[in-house]
Amino acid sequence: MSRVRIVGGEWRSRLIDVSTVKGLRPTPDRVRETLFNWLGQELDGRRCLDLFAGSGALGFEAASRGAESVTMVEQDPVAFAALRDNAKALQATRVQLVRGDALKFARSVPQPFDVVFLDPPYRAGWIERIASLLPGLLTEDGVVYVEAEYGIESIEGLTRIKHGTAGQVYYHLFAACA
Rank of each mutant, 00 (worst) to 15 (best):
Met1Lys: 13
Arg5Tyr: 08
Ile6Asn: 08
Val7Ala: 15
Gly8Ile: 02
Glu10Asp: 12
Glu10Gln: 14
Trp11Val: 03
Trp11His: 09
Ser13Lys: 13
Arg14Cys: 03
Leu15Ile: 02
Thr20Ser: 13
Lys22His: 14
Leu24Cys: 07
Val31Tyr: 01
Glu33Asn: 02
Glu33Ile: 07
Leu35Met: 14
Phe36Trp: 12
Leu39Tyr: 01
Gly40His: 08
Leu43Asn: 07
Leu49Gly: 09
Asp50Asn: 06
Asp50His: 06
Ala53Asp: 10
Ala53Thr: 13
Gly54Asn: 10
Gly56Ala: 11
Ala57Ile: 11
Ala57Thr: 13
Glu68Met: 14
Glu68Ala: 15
Ser69Met: 15
Thr71Cys: 14
Val73His: 05
Val73Glu: 07
Pro77Met: 02
Val78Arg: 15
Ala79Gly: 05
Phe80Gln: 12
Arg84Phe: 08
Asp85Gly: 08
Asn86Asp: 01
Ala87Val: 03
Ala87Asp: 02
Ala89Asp: 10
Ala92Asn: 04
Ala92Ser: 02
Val95Pro: 07
Lys104Phe: 02
Ala106Gly: 12
Arg107Tyr: 06
Val109Leu: 03
Gln111Leu: 07
Gln111Trp: 10
Pro112Glu: 03
Pro112Asp: 04
Asp114His: 15
Phe117Glu: 08
Pro121His: 12
Pro121Asp: 10
Ala124Trp: 06
Gly125Cys: 07
Glu128Ile: 06
Arg129Pro: 05
Leu134Glu: 00
Gly136Glu: 03
Val144His: 02
Tyr145His: 06
Tyr145Met: 04
Val146Met: 11
Tyr150Ile: 03
Ile152Val: 11
Ile152Gly: 04
Glu153His: 11
Ser154Met: 04
Ile155Ala: 05
Gly157Val: 02
Leu158Ala: 10
Arg160Lys: 14
Lys162Asp: 01
Gly164Thr: 13
Thr165Phe: 11
Ala166His: 14
Gln168Glu: 15
Phe174Asn: 02
Cys177Glu: 14
